[in-house]
Amino acid sequence: MADLFTLRAAVEADRPYLDAYCWNEGMDNLPSLERVTVAANADDEPVGFIRIALGANGAAHVNPVVTHASWRGYGVGRALMEAAAAEHGELRLVARGASVPFYDALGFEECDWGLIDTSVTENCEGCELVDECNPKPMRRG
């Protein structure tokens, strides 16, 4: 399935896609395109992306990984996660409860909240959707 898309660094022309994908998932727009990798289809349109945020302790945090709904099941999210792991080694993240099975399949395990950088968790505190989201701190190393 890897011939359906390629991975590349995000460029400014990708921003409308990435912002729309964030909005569809109930997230804010990305603060920058630094450390953002996109999966692009044959027309070079983003069909998914991953952003790696480096914590104060230097740990790499997935924040976020998103695949367009029409591309789910084609290995886009897995390819983005594997590329990030190959580059950064250990990955940490806060998973929405519904996405925990995806991360479980990639070998992630639940971990202590203290391992997740506060820049990644700040949106969880006080969020009105926290009960619906059911966030879980996870890591793979």
Rank of each mutant, 00 (worst) to 15 (best):
Met1Tyr: 04
Ala2His: 15
Asp3His: 12
Leu4Glu: 10
Phe5Met: 06
Arg8Asp: 11
Ala9Cys: 02
Ala10Arg: 03
Val11Thr: 13
Glu12Cys: 05
Glu12Asn: 13
Ala13Arg: 12
Asp14Ala: 11
Arg15Lys: 13
Pro16Thr: 10
Pro16Ala: 08
Tyr17Asp: 15
Leu18Cys: 02
Ala20Lys: 15
Tyr21Asn: 05
Cys22Ser: 09
Trp23Gly: 03
Trp23Ser: 12
Met27Cys: 03
Met27Ser: 00
Asp28Ala: 14
Leu30Gln: 07
Pro31Ser: 01
Pro31Gln: 11
Arg35His: 11
Val36Gly: 08
Thr37Ala: 02
Ala39Met: 01
Ala39Pro: 08
Ala40Met: 08
Ala40Glu: 03
Ala42His: 05
Glu45Pro: 01
Pro46Val: 07
Val47Asp: 01
Phe49Met: 02
Phe49Ala: 00
Phe49Gln: 05
Ile50Gln: 08
Arg51His: 11
Ile52Phe: 07
Leu54Asn: 08
Leu54Phe: 09
Ala56Ile: 05
Asn57Gln: 10
Gly58Val: 07
Gly58Cys: 01
Gly58Ala: 13
Gly58Tyr: 01
His61Asn: 12
Val62Met: 11
Val62Gln: 05
Asn63Ile: 00
Val66Trp: 02
Val66Ser: 04
His68Ala: 15
Ser70Asn: 12
Trp71His: 08
Tyr74Thr: 03
Tyr74Trp: 09
Gly75Ala: 03
Val76Trp: 01
Arg78Glu: 07
Ala79Gln: 07
Ala79Trp: 00
Leu80Tyr: 09
Leu80Asp: 04
Met81Leu: 09
Met81Lys: 00
Met81Glu: 04
Glu82Cys: 03
Glu82Gln: 14
Ala83Pro: 03
Ala83Phe: 03
Ala86Val: 03
Ala86Tyr: 08
His88Glu: 05
Gly89Asn: 06
Glu90Met: 02
Leu91Lys: 10
Leu93His: 05
Val94Trp: 03
Val94Arg: 03
Arg96Tyr: 12
Gly97Ile: 09
Gly97Tyr: 07
Ser99Lys: 12
Ser99Thr: 02
Phe102Met: 11
Asp104Pro: 00
Ala105Lys: 13
Ala105Thr: 04
Leu106Gln: 10
Leu106Met: 12
Leu106Ala: 10
Gly107Arg: 01
Cys111Glu: 08
Asp112Gln: 14
Trp113Phe: 06
Trp113Val: 10
Ile116Ser: 03
Asp117Pro: 05
Asp117Arg: 06
Asp117Glu: 02
Val120Tyr: 03
Val120Trp: 08
Glu122Met: 13
Cys124Met: 14
Glu125Lys: 15
Glu125Gly: 05
Glu125Trp: 15
Gly126Asn: 07
Gly126Ser: 02
Cys127Arg: 15
Cys127Leu: 13
Leu129Cys: 11
Asp131Ile: 11
Asp131Leu: 09
Asp131His: 08
Asp131Arg: 10
Glu132Phe: 14
Cys133Lys: 00
Asn134Val: 00
Asn134Met: 13
Pro135Tyr: 11
Pro135Cys: 07
Pro135Phe: 06
Pro135Gly: 14
Lys136Gly: 00
Pro137Trp: 09
Pro137Gly: 11
Met138Trp: 07
Arg139Leu: 11
Arg140Met: 07
Gly141Arg: 12
